[in-house]
Amino acid sequence: AVSDRLIGRKGVVMEAISPQNSGLVKVDGETWRATSGTVLDVGEEVSVKAIEGVKLVVEKLE
């Protein structure tokens, strides 16, 4: 699937994400809805860990 190529890629949070609410991330110039187990603020760099349906699962870049 086209989304599989995104796993491991870096992105930037465009709309804040929390465990309760999905947000938006931009990866390779495309905007995706994303979820995370932690709070991520706009502008934070993330990496794509998995894909669930049409949402990316991301975590903060260390």
Rank of each mutant, 00 (worst) to 15 (best):
A34F: 03
V42Q: 08
L61E: 07
L56Q: 00
V58A: 02
K60A: 06
V42K: 08
V12H: 08
L56Y: 03
K55F: 15
E52L: 12
W32L: 04
I51Q: 05
V13Q: 00
V12I: 10
V54W: 15
V54G: 12
G37W: 15
D28W: 07
E59F: 15
T38C: 05
S18W: 09
W32Y: 10
E45F: 14
N21S: 12
R9D: 03
A16G: 10
I51S: 04
L40M: 07
D28E: 14
A16N: 12
T35M: 13
R33L: 09
K55Y: 15
G23N: 01
L6A: 03
S18A: 11
V25M: 02
W32Q: 03
M14V: 11
G37R: 13
I17Q: 01
G53V: 04
V2T: 13
K10Y: 10
I7V: 12
A1M: 10
V48C: 04
V12E: 05
K55S: 13
L24F: 11
V57W: 14
V54L: 13
T31V: 10
S36F: 02
I17C: 05
S47E: 10
G29A: 10
L24P: 01
S3R: 05
E15K: 12
I7L: 13
V25Y: 00
R33I: 06
E62H: 15
S47W: 15
V2D: 14
V27A: 03
V48G: 01
D41P: 10
G8W: 03
V2E: 15
Q20C: 10
L61K: 06
R5I: 09
A34P: 00
D28I: 08
K55A: 14
L56F: 03
D41K: 15
V48Y: 00
G29H: 13
I17T: 04
V54Y: 15
V13R: 00
G11S: 02
E44Y: 06
E62R: 14
G23Y: 12
K26H: 10
K60V: 05
Q20R: 13
K10F: 10
V13I: 06
V27E: 00
S22W: 15
G37F: 15
G43K: 12
V42T: 06
L56N: 00
T35C: 06
G23S: 01
S22I: 12
I51R: 07
V39W: 11
D28F: 07
T35H: 06
T35F: 09
T35D: 07
T35L: 15
S3M: 10
G11T: 02
A50Y: 09
E62G: 09
I7W: 03
E30D: 08
K49E: 05
A1W: 05
I7P: 03
A16I: 11
T35I: 12
R9G: 04
K55I: 14
E59A: 12
D4W: 03
V58R: 00
T31P: 05
K49P: 01
D4Q: 11
S18K: 10
N21E: 10
L40P: 01
P19D: 06
E45L: 14
A1R: 03
P19K: 07
R9T: 05
D4N: 11
S3E: 13
V48P: 01
W32N: 02
V12F: 15
I51D: 02
E62D: 12
L61H: 08
A34C: 04
E62K: 14
G37E: 09
K60T: 05
V12A: 06
E62W: 15
G43P: 04
E44N: 09
E44F: 09
E59S: 12
E45V: 10
G29C: 08
S47K: 12
T38F: 14
P19L: 06
V2Y: 03
E30K: 06
S3Y: 05
K49S: 10
A1K: 04
G29I: 07
Q20D: 13
V2L: 13
V57C: 05
V46S: 02
L6D: 02
E45G: 10
D4A: 09
W32K: 02
V25S: 01
T31D: 11
L24G: 04
A1Q: 12
G8Y: 03
V57T: 05
G11E: 00
K26I: 09
E52T: 10
S36V: 01
V39P: 08
V12Q: 08
S36N: 02
E62A: 15
G43C: 06
R5N: 13
G8P: 02
G23K: 01
Q20A: 13
S22V: 11
G43H: 08
T38K: 10
V58K: 00
S47L: 13
S47F: 12
V54K: 07
R9P: 02
V46H: 01
K55Q: 13
G37M: 14
T38V: 11
E59P: 00
A34L: 00
G37K: 11
Q20V: 09
L56R: 00
K49N: 05
S18T: 15
E52C: 08
A1H: 07
L6C: 03
K49W: 11
E62Q: 14
T35Q: 09
T31H: 08
K49R: 14
V2F: 04
K26S: 08
A50S: 08
V25L: 02
E45W: 14
S22P: 10
V39M: 14
K49T: 11
K55V: 15
R5L: 15
L6F: 08
S3P: 08
S47C: 06
K49G: 03
